[in-house]
Design a protein around this nucleic acid. Structure first.
Lengths: 348, 348
DNA sequence: TTGAAAGCGGTACCAA
DNA sequence: TTGGTACCGCTTTCAA
């Protein structure tokens, strides 16, 4: 057989026909046996022969051929421009882990496809070529109505979009980033803060999410006539944070929502280095709130107060997708992906 | 056309035959036109008609059918048990981003497939069903020789495995975690430290990587007869870190390599809270070194010294994969994925 | 209990 | 310049 390691001139992969020949039966019989449809059709001995032959040849069914014949694939596409994957952080990768295994258990193959972010249409075309059973777009903007339409025409039974809103025809996975901002705002306002700065990352990845969180803070502030909200542009570097901290006295703020823990920590450290005192109590102290509730955020002093996201278990979302696939005619609906609450600590 | 939003009873996706009918030509002609093989075969006017028809119907080629006919797919599988994705951290997601877009430019579809981690063979089977052109296994252990053999038999032209070593038949992507440990060890030894603790995360995700990094530190210590290396078990919680810090005096160590920045920061903070002084200089100070060079690690005081990974640009790895695919008979080789060096800061 | 054959969508050869 | 057609691997009806 193999007398040398290393990829020899690739032998043609074994087909079901090869298995049939090897077992001395027809292709149909092989198909029945290997798909558990053999009950009462194929004799025990024959089944055993077929299985042995498949094993011996290292036969693996050809997913493409199968779904071509079946008319529907079992691929679930998780679409996210790869730079966004980074923006989501550990929360996302953790979710991804459970989601893929849950899908696997349900008989689907979940796969992450980093979109070539050029245009919504281009992305949709690339996905549609794979004829996925479902597409989950985990990035805010890039899917519009024509793109969804294209996917549907390509046979995709369910299109789900992350965001506060979705294009017509698509389901919504609601993880309302405005809520994150609102919670942070309400928390600070309840503690008497009235002049609130909100970090707006200079990096393009988090931009959209940041805008929503800012809007949330504004919404919370609307309930207090004397409250003021001010966006603060900040890049993810120590220099940028130092610059912002240097300009601080002119801003006249008594609280900051740092977009997420990382930016919040960056700014908090810079403010401390510039001589400001951070803390939840007292008008002389500056309140700082982050989001995502990173472990690392508890290592700074004072510990960082953070908006924590309670994400729906990935198994549940996988189940939702499976349900949608069973009933493709279901009208687009809104499905909550999670909610936010504040975990108060010493910083604010 | 569409008078209601929402997925209507899914119309059959348009096929190339539908385009042919719509344009009043044959399927062959459609194929030629849409694949740029029309030069000198099909008239300009006909080409225009075909393209218009395709556009109008929203035609998207069926990747499965195409690769079925072609005998080879254009799918590149990035395989990583999803919990490992988390373990790799931002370094990995950043790499993933560039890699997928680079592959896309080369005409391949790169896709992340979280393996059902049950067994190497089961994983290989799941991947083989997709008949990928190449598989990159980014997780250390789970691919053995039979699994690689199976993939090759399924027509996968290139199998690449991350790690210091690879099973026969597979290429090696070398990101030598021992080197990370060695660099940390050499750094501490050069600064006169001799009793070095090395964090071993209790979590299963980083376990293998941690073992290699520990081995690297040991290798570095071998050059100094009086040096001692001691593994330190630590879970990713503040309680665990506090416990380890409480037991510190009995350990008699003058330096720690914290596995990565996160564990290092966790431990460093706990040690500080327990009254120890961290720093690079002076025998009364405890030296702490992390790895991954996170931005956040610069926010603690003293700033964390870290082992920085210099990763080969993803475009380059994508190019390598493409080359391997063009010459599948190339003997398995070792390809460096990156290297490590220490970024010294105040903590050690 | 098993086999023959049609057909999923697309490509490419050969004939017209 | 274009059309007819065989075939890629697999499932499934129908007939034997």
């Amino acid at each position: 057989m193999t007398d040398r390691a290393g990829p020899r001139a690739t032998p043609t992969p074994p087909t079901s026909a090869a298995v049939a020949r090897h077992a001395g039966v027809s292709r149909a019989t092989v198909s029945y046996v290997l798909n558990g449809q053999a009950a009462g059709r194929v004799g025990e001995r024959t089944q055993a022969r077929v299985r042995a032959a498949a094993e011996e040849l290292g036969y693996v069914p050809h997913a493409a051929a199968r779904s071509l014949r079946a008319g529907r694939g079992r691929l679930v596409l998780l679409a996210a421009p790869a730079d966004a994957v980074e923006a989501f952080g550990p929360l996302f990768t953790g979710f991804l882990a459970g989601f893929q295994t849950a899908l696997h258990r349900l008989g689907y193959t979940g796969v992450l496809h980093g979109a070539p972010a050029s245009s919504p249409m281009a992305a949709a075309r690339a996905w549609a070529e794979l004829r996925p059973a479902a597409v989950l777009n985990l990035y805010g903007p890039p899917l519009d109505a024509p793109a969804v339409e294209l996917l549907h025409r390509a046979g995709t039974a369910a299109v789900l979009v992350l965001g506060p809103s979705a294009p017509p025809g698509a389901h919504t996975l609601l993880l309302d980033q405005r809520e994150a901002g609102r919670r942070a705002g309400e928390h600070l306002l309840a503690r008497g803060r009235r002049r609130i700065g909100v970090v707006r990352p200079a990096e393009p990845g988090p931009a959209d999410c940041a805008e929503l969180r800012l809007a949330g803070v504004r919404a919370a502030a609307a309930a207090h006539p004397d409250a003021r909200v001010r966006p603060l542009d900040l890049a993810r570097t120590e220099e940028s944070a130092a610059g912002l901290a240097a300009a601080w006295p002119e801003l006249g703020l008594d609280a900051v929502f740092g977009y997420n823990d990382e930016y919040a920590m960056l700014l908090m450290r810079a403010l401390q280095d510039a001589g400001h005192t951070i803390g939840a109590d007292g008008p002389d102290r500056l309140a700082v709130v982050g989001a995502d509730d990173l472990l690392l955020a508890r290592l700074l002093r004072p510990r960082l107060t953070s908006v924590h996201a309670e994400i729906t278990p990935p198994e549940q979302i996988a189940g939702l997708v499976a349900d949608l696939l069973l009933d493709p005619a279901a009208p687009p609906a809104i499905h909550r992906l999670g909610s936010f609450h504040v975990t108060p600590r010493a910083s604010g």
